[in-house]
Every structure is written in structure tokens, then in C-alpha cells.
Amino acid sequence: MSNIAILCSGGDVSGMNPAIKHFVEYSLKKDLTPFFVYNGYEGLIDNDIQEVSYRDVSGIINRGGTKIGSARSKRFMNPEYRQIAKDNLDALNINMLVVLGGDGSFRGLDAFYKEHSIKSCGIPSTIDNDIHGTDYCLGVDSALNIIRTSIDAIRDTASSFNRAFIIETMGRDCGYLALISALTSGAELCLIPEREHNISDYEDNFKTQMAHGRKYFIAIVSEGIKQDPQEIAKWFEETIGIESRVSILGHIQRGGNPTSYDRLMAYKFVNYAIDGLLGSHTNSVICYTKDGFIYKSIDEVTGSAFKLDPDLLRLLEDV
């Protein structure tokens, strides 16, 4: 019986716990012995590794975050510490590793494989949905639903008090969350890093809307834009003539119960990861595209910058 381990690296997402649960169940089904690595690559270095079974994942499928913890590890960037991690895995006869994470996590995984030949598979897991080569990352649907619920609640106050609300989503370098949330919530304004803007360009249109009866505005902005949300609120008040407020959603977007879709995607990602490791895919990332699930090399995934789907950007022209 072969031994296989799983770890989470980088930011947590809702969907990790369903993936962890199914990892244990599917590993056992495939006659593998599953292990948890706690606290990401730091746990590999510190030998925080434990054999697990069904009892260890009971009752976690509906929980956000990750039962096994996550971390960002500067030490793992050092070959000396990667050697320690390899020695720890060897001591437990673990020769396969699944990593839930993003670009940085996958680069560390690639270096680990090239130095020590541990069979590895990455599962894209980030609410920013900004990993090249995959159309979907685990946790995105849960984050979008948290944002949708928040916007719907804020709209109640906006309409009651005739206010403009500037709602900031996560997305330091990628505007995916803001874009999809704006399109699906009927926002009047959406500002993202991928599209340059001049807020004054909206002045005539918004004043016309108010003259024709608009009583409130919903503006969705990504944290990655160069303009401070408070400046946008000030512009609404001083230029458009409507009382304004700012709501920073922050880390609420990363928590909460995983949606049914993320639970299903976790199931599928894990199946492909383990099947690939048992087959010929010894150093890959599972990507979900219009053609279904595809194994791609880590170099292919991390070697190019992520770009938003042009079709989605075209839809933004109507916002």
C-alpha cells in the first residue's frame, strides 16, 4: 500500500475542507494510506504530518477554511529546508503529494519535484480565480455567493436612504470577483485593475440617471484599483450629489459554508489528482477548462500571467 499526503498552502478558501474529506475517502478506496500535512509547507519542514482515516474528516464538509491549516512558507524557498521536508516524507514512506493552493504554492511544489522526485499534483484554490490555464479555482463560487449576499443586504439600506454604496471586493491583482459580482448584482459601476478608468467619465450618465428617477447607486470596486474607495464616495457626494458610504468586505469573502458547486468541484478535483498520481502524471496541476478537466505542467501554469476572459470584459462595457 502506497502513502499519499495532502496540504494547503497560501490563502484559505471555502472548498478546502470538502476536498480534504474526499481526499481521505478516495485514497482509502484506492488502497492508499492518507496523511495530513498541517500548516502547509511549514508542516512538511516541521514534520507535522499525521496518518488519518474517516474519523478525521467526519463533519467537515460544510465548514469553511481548512481543518489542516494553511501557511505561507519562506523557509520552503530554501533548498536546505526542502531537503528536510523530503527526509520527513521518506521516514513515513510518503511518495505522493497533493497541494491545494495558488501560483506561489505550485512553484514551490515544482522545485520540490525537480529536486526530489516526489510525485506531485496541484489543485487550484484561490478566490481570486487568477491562475493561468484554469477557468475555475476551488473556492470561487463560495466567495461569489458571500459577496452576492452582502451586496443584496447593502442594497436594502442604499434604497432606503437614497445613497451610493461603494463596495470593495478582494482581488489585489485580478478583478474577477468584482466583475462577476457587478454583472450578477446589477451594479451601476464596476472598477477593476484590468480596465483603466477615469471616474469623471461617468458624471454625465449618472446625473442623467438621477434626473430620470434613480435614487441610489451600487458601485463594485476591486481592491486592486489605484483609486481609494473613499475618494470615489467623495466624488459621488460632491459631483453627483448623493450621500455615499463605503463597505470593505474584506476576509468575510474567504469564509462561510462551501456552496454545493464548490463541494462538487472539490470532489472532482481530488478524483483527478489522485487518479493522475496513480497514472502517468507525476508533476501536474489539475485545470478546469471548457474542454473539461486537463492535466497541465506546473511550468505551463506558472509560466504565464493570468488574463481575464475577453468575453467577460466585453460584458463590462454595458455596466
Rank of each mutant, 00 (worst) to 15 (best):
F293N: 05
F76P: 15
N129A: 06
N129M: 06
E231H: 04
D262F: 09
S73A: 02
G292K: 12
I4A: 06
A19V: 11
Y202E: 03
K30A: 00
A111F: 11
Q227N: 08
G40D: 01
L89S: 15
L89T: 14
G64D: 00
E231S: 11
T208A: 13
R314H: 12
L179F: 08
N129T: 09
T149H: 08
F236M: 14
S2W: 00
F236W: 10
F23I: 01
N198R: 12
I84W: 01
L264A: 10
T239S: 11
D152S: 15
S142W: 00
I151F: 04
S120F: 08
Y295D: 01
E300N: 09
D128Q: 05
G11Q: 00
A178Q: 08
D135N: 14
V270I: 14
E80P: 07
E203K: 14
G122V: 11
N3V: 05
A91F: 11
I127F: 08
A211Y: 02
D135R: 15
S244K: 03
L264G: 02
T282S: 03
S58F: 15
S304E: 12
V270G: 06
L97W: 02
I180Y: 03
D311S: 12
D173Q: 03
I68G: 14
S185V: 12
P193C: 07
S125Y: 04
K67C: 03
H116N: 02
I274C: 15
N3Y: 02
I218R: 10
S53D: 10
S70H: 05
D12A: 04
G10D: 07
I94Y: 02
S58G: 13
S244I: 02
N198S: 08
D141K: 06
L177G: 10
D110C: 13
H197K: 10
A19H: 12
E80R: 12
H251K: 09
H132F: 13
K207H: 04
Y288A: 00
N39S: 10
I199C: 01
G133A: 08
Y261K: 12
R314Q: 14
G255F: 01
I131W: 08
D103R: 04
V270M: 11
L7M: 04
I4L: 13
S73K: 00
V52N: 07
T259H: 06
E300I: 08
H22A: 02
I286A: 03
S181N: 03
